[in-house]
Design a protein around this nucleic acid. Structure first.
Lengths: 268, 268
DNA sequence: GCAAAAGTGTTAGCAATACACCCATGC
DNA sequence: GCATGGGTGTATTGCTAACACTTTTGC
């Protein structure tokens, strides 16, 4: 089916999608969220992501980003969703294209591969079905990841940089912290993402002064301490999309079709 | 060679690269640059880009972004360079991946196509051989482009947004204005890119205060007016790359091989 | 001298920072 | 009361915007 090597060099490479998935804590069915969590662990100090164990060479047995194939009749975003759901049973509330990697050297002995990488944010209520964890999928904290296949480590670092660059956008934060949240929770997310300490007092003021938050009237008591006010982003703040992103691949295509299920796999 | 339609739907789509090329003025061999230009036209108020006339259906005869194929043994960046040089005879000093477009709807009757789009910045001294202009290539000011094939108009808008977002980076500005420049020239570039009027006095101060500029000692007289000091970016400023970009596709791969020349063409 | 562009000074206002302080709650 | 996190006050500092002003050149 395939010609000799010198012929193959002129062929186009393979294509696939991979997804970097980020959440404040491992997502499973039990976290059915909805209202702000008064979780005892405090969570918020680091981000987590699911990885998939490779079942083929090269890098057999190593951890890698979830991935899948591309089909000519699907948009890139749809393919990313499909890859995501088939491995982690998640339907993220935020999905955005990250970068396309295509250097011949990155295949490390496999076929040359172009990977279109998306990154996704998931919150507590995004689990659709039974979690696949324990199978070939496992959640890791981003600050202590295992050794990764291919160039996936670099891809993840790049994704984290992108997340840091977008932390100001309500759409982003909301997907992580949820729709309703206290200022402390919001503050925790900012610190988890930036990795830096942020003065809470100034943070409150800045957020409230931005006019993007509105008090829901609710209160949330965390431990045995003073209850905190619960906020949400005002509608107009959520709508305001960044024109220099999502510019491409039909950002409005939400409905992805139920299709033939894929088995959990990774691509480069 | 190709199966029926329902088989083809499951196939991966085609892949190609396209390039959005931007310059302060149309680039041809005559502008051999090197030192800052005292051009009579003042140039600096708008950006220009080359487009290629399509020689196939769909959109036959319409203007489109330069593009080319992807080969399994080339990096994406190398493929972008190849597409660039084969159409415009330019070797840009800045090349960066923009976005990957892959919606099935964008092919408009052609084969489904995934386009990995790069954007490039060229200055006066980037022309390598005879300019191809007049053949099927023509330069247009970005604020009055002709009607474009496919979704190329949206792609260009997206590229402009990206450029605006990066105008602060010395690497970007330098590729447009050149290595040595007066503050007025720098100011013109900022205004051309942002599209907004910027107070020259404050602009000077801000730039000088940044510590990123150094006086070369040279003077440049533009018309019959007072000569202006010529500056350049300090080395450390140029080196400082943005980690959340160029993270991917072997950013250090500069040497692109001389290879079989391609004929001027466009892809989706 | 006059025009035109280079370059400087001055002011007001806004936003980020640092940090001291008070408030509400459960034990 | 006291510990803990929620929430407020306030001074300092630095950057930005607006705009009036001076300097250097060719004609």
């Amino acid at each position: 089916m395939m010609g000799n090597v010198s012929e193959r060099r002129k062929q186009p490479p393979q294509i696939g999608v991979s997804v970097v998935i980020l959440a404040l804590e491992p997502v499973s069915r039990s976290n059915d969220g909805g209202r702000p969590e008064a979780g005892p662990s405090g969570a918020g100090s680091t981000l987590w992501m699911p990885l998939v164990k490779r079942v083929r060479q090269p890098f057999l047995g190593q951890w890698a980003l979830p991935g899948g194939d591309l089909r000519a009749d699907h948009s890139l975003e749809q393919s990313a969703y499909a890859a995501l759901e088939s491995t982690t049973s998640l339907h993220p509330r935020y999905l955005e294209q990250l970068y396309t990697f295509g250097d011949p050297a990155r295949s490390h002995g496999g076929l040359p591969m172009v990977s279109i990488v998306y990154w996704a944010l998931v919150g507590g209520s995004d689990a659709q079905t039974e979690p696949v964890e324990g199978n070939n999928v496992k959640w890791f904290p981003v600050d202590s990841l295992p050794e990764l296949a291919f160039d996936h480590r670099a891809i993840i670092d790049y994704a984290m940089g992108r997340l840091r660059g977008k932390i100001e956008y309500p759409q982003i934060v909301t997907r992580l912290v949820g729709e309703r949240f206290t200022l402390s929770q919001l503050h925790d997310v900012y610190e988890a993402v930036t990795g830096e300490a942020i003065d809470l007092a100034n943070f409150r003021r800045k957020m409230l002064a931005s006019g993007q938050l509105e008090d829901t009237g609710e209160k949330l008591r965390v431990g045995r301490n003073r209850p905190a006010a619960v906020y949400r982003y005002v509608r107009s703040a959520l709508r305001r999309a960044t024109p220099w992103d999502h510019g491409g691949d039909h950002p409005d295509s939400k409905g992805q079709e139920e299709d033939d299920a894929l088995t959990a796999l990774t691509t480069i």
